[in-house]
Design a protein around this nucleic acid. Sequence first.
DNA 1: CAATTGACTGGCA
DNA 2: GTGCCAGCCAATT
Length: 102
Amino acid sequence: MNRTLNEELIYEILSVVEEIPVGKVATYGQIAGLIGRERNARLIGRVLSMAEFYGRYPCHRVVNQAGRLAPGWKEQRGLLEGEGVPMKNETHVAIKLYQWEC
DNA sequence: CAATTGACTGGCA
DNA sequence: GTGCCAGCCAATT
């Protein structure tokens, strides 16, 4: 498998994701802004979906603006709970109270 | 190479 | 809160 995505883009995204403190969550848009691509929130999701392939990163601490977890990814909920992020329900976290602020 | 899709966001109703 | 539209970009088909 080649590095399908630009390593530069990967580095920027993952470096921000890695800075998310335990017990906090960040949104795709927030990360997108930090890497200079505010309108590319989808890219964060795309890269994060393959982040495990590039390395180990807390991609489970990244959720969408509504606080919803990644569809089709059941592990994410347990990971967040294990880090001290309570779930409002099966699919949403209390991002309103736990969103990461730099 | 063209079209489609997707772990999205912000604006407006 | 939900729904529709437009924009942005890489991976997949």
